[in-house]
Computed example of a mutant assay.
Amino acid sequence: MTTPVHTGMAAELAMDLAHASLSLAQHFSDGATMWCIAPAFSPHAQHIAVEFVHPVVVGKRALPAVALTGPDLVGQTRMSTRAGDVVIACSAADDPDVLAVMRRADAWGVTSIWIGNGERPPIGAADHVLWLDDPDPMLATTGEFVLMYHLLWELTHVCFEHPGLLTATPAVCTEDVCITCSDEGRPAEVLATGSDGTACVRTAQGKEDVVTVLAGALFPGDLVLIHAGMVISKLKEG
């Protein structure tokens, strides 16, 4: 697969774009919807959605993408996403709404893509980080971000031209103890709590009822780790 590289684009960023595009193509092929958020620059969210829904190149497929704007972006994203979807955000690394969404992505079962500039998010903050190191706070108002998601769109369609790439390689357990299969510390978000020491939580597998006696007081929206049907710890927001 040939990757078009913008003049001056770092090789690491070009590789990140290629990986994110392949992941997007695979998820779209599996029926995913992409949800776009940009709290400080909502036109970016709308522009991304338009790029994917209304391709300007004849013969390219329209892809399901929706811009979420307005207040309570965390609540909107929570209600809109389903397991297997993708959330893409344009923001600085310290945007509280985007941080909250990215922290919950694993619990919701969605893949996360984060576009931004300046100080980088913590390692592992999103599945794919497409970042410009220029700290200029006005960079998001220039064409650099637009170029980023235009390339993301183009490379996603390049992947569609190679059907063999569209099926993700399944995970294979080769160890005596598999962390995933043994249900060790799965992330979840609390949906509701009961008076009997239980709670209903959302995980990548769907809604589950779990025991909370080890975790202390919990409230809707809290992030927790669950194991064997029990909350084993509460995750801090910071």
Rank of each mutant, 00 (worst) to 15 (best):
T141G: 01
T141M: 07
T141P: 00
T141V: 03
T141Y: 00
T142L: 01
G143P: 04
G143D: 13
G143T: 14
G143M: 13
E144A: 07
E144L: 03
F145V: 14
F145C: 05
F145H: 09
F145E: 06
F145D: 06
V146K: 04
V146N: 04
L147A: 06
M148N: 01
M148F: 01
Y149N: 05
Y149V: 03
H150M: 11
L151H: 01
L151F: 05
L152M: 13
L152C: 12
L152K: 11
L152D: 10
W153M: 04
W153K: 10
E154M: 05
L155Y: 03
T156M: 08
T156S: 12
T156F: 07
T156A: 04
H157D: 12
V158D: 14
C159H: 14
C159D: 14
F160R: 09
F160H: 13
F160N: 09
E161K: 09
E161M: 05
H162E: 10
P163Y: 09
G164I: 12
G164E: 14
L165E: 15
L166E: 10
L166R: 11
L166A: 06
T167I: 14
T167D: 15
A168W: 13
T169E: 15
T169I: 13
T169R: 15
A171D: 07
V172K: 09
V172Y: 03
C173F: 02
C173G: 11
T174I: 06
T174Q: 10
T174A: 08
